[in-house]
Simulated scan of single mutants.
Amino acid sequence: MVQTERFSAPARRVDAVAQRLRELGARWPASDGVGVFNRVYLAVTVAVGRDIAQGRFADPRAAAALDVRFAERYVRAVELVESGGAGPACWRPLFQYRRHPGVQPLQFALAGINAHIGHDLAHALVDTARSLACDPLELEDEFDRVGELLVALEERIREDLMPGPDLLQVADPLTHLLGSWSLDRARDGAWSSARALWALREFPGLADEFGQRLDAGVGLVGRMLLTPLSR
């Protein structure tokens, strides 16, 4: 019973996150760019919850805490924009271009992943370390496991959302654009950013400046990923 509760209680926390994502997704039509990302993120969250419940995380409590903190960043961005705010710079391109007819669903999905991994994951890791009173290095296994799920999902996303066989052509603009971005590199960058933010925690001014630069830089990449490629 104790062993079962060790996994089921954290899994329920992640299930609550998944339910929140379902509620958000129900607001938007299938063509909405934020909705495209939301469906992708829901799939990742369900996979994390399943793996926690099946004991695939060494520390299920830490894994659930990281997942919840991670999701909070995205949900807050949605709520801020829907209340009339600008939202974090990393998310602005996706919200601004969410209905652009020249942007492909795959671009929406990867732009959302870029914002969430490149910016939110670093902050979520630091937030989780603070809440658990540990160093981010102690959460590396959980970080890596979530990253593995994302990498596996990215391959499926590319297969499911590719608009057609023309993308096999090297000269195709979308092939060129998507080939310039890598989830592995974004995940490595998030780990380095989290360590930098943690090292700067006793220097709030520098930490804030670093966070703003990170936000802006990730937003710039997102804007490029959303370059309209067709009418």
Rank of each mutant, 00 (worst) to 15 (best):
residue 8 S to F: 05
residue 11 A to R: 03
residue 13 R to G: 04
residue 15 D to I: 02
residue 19 Q to L: 13
residue 19 Q to R: 10
residue 24 L to N: 10
residue 27 R to N: 07
residue 29 P to E: 08
residue 29 P to S: 10
residue 30 A to L: 14
residue 30 A to T: 01
residue 38 N to C: 11
residue 42 L to D: 13
residue 43 A to T: 13
residue 49 G to P: 07
residue 57 F to C: 10
residue 57 F to L: 11
residue 58 A to F: 04
residue 62 A to G: 07
residue 62 A to S: 15
residue 63 A to K: 02
residue 64 A to C: 11
residue 69 R to K: 08
residue 71 A to Q: 07
residue 71 A to E: 04
residue 72 E to G: 05
residue 73 R to I: 00
residue 73 R to W: 05
residue 77 A to R: 00
residue 79 E to V: 01
residue 81 V to N: 00
residue 83 S to A: 15
residue 93 P to S: 11
residue 93 P to I: 06
residue 95 F to D: 01
residue 96 Q to M: 11
residue 97 Y to K: 06
residue 106 L to Q: 08
residue 106 L to C: 08
residue 107 Q to K: 08
residue 107 Q to R: 06
residue 115 A to K: 01
residue 117 I to C: 10
residue 117 I to L: 13
residue 122 A to N: 04
residue 123 H to Y: 03
residue 125 L to I: 03
residue 136 P to W: 06
residue 137 L to T: 10
residue 140 E to T: 07
residue 146 V to C: 12
residue 150 L to K: 08
residue 150 L to S: 06
residue 159 E to F: 15
residue 166 D to I: 02
residue 166 D to H: 15
residue 167 L to F: 14
residue 167 L to M: 14
residue 168 L to R: 06
residue 170 V to I: 06
residue 172 D to W: 13
residue 174 L to C: 05
residue 174 L to I: 00
residue 175 T to V: 05
residue 177 L to Y: 05
residue 186 A to Q: 09
residue 187 R to W: 10
residue 187 R to N: 04
residue 188 D to E: 14
residue 191 W to Q: 13
residue 192 S to A: 14
residue 194 A to K: 03
residue 196 A to H: 12
residue 205 G to S: 09
residue 205 G to I: 05
residue 207 A to S: 14
residue 207 A to D: 05
residue 212 Q to G: 14
residue 212 Q to N: 14
residue 221 V to I: 14
residue 222 G to V: 04
residue 223 R to L: 15
residue 225 L to F: 06
residue 225 L to E: 13
residue 225 L to V: 04
residue 227 T to K: 15
residue 229 L to G: 12
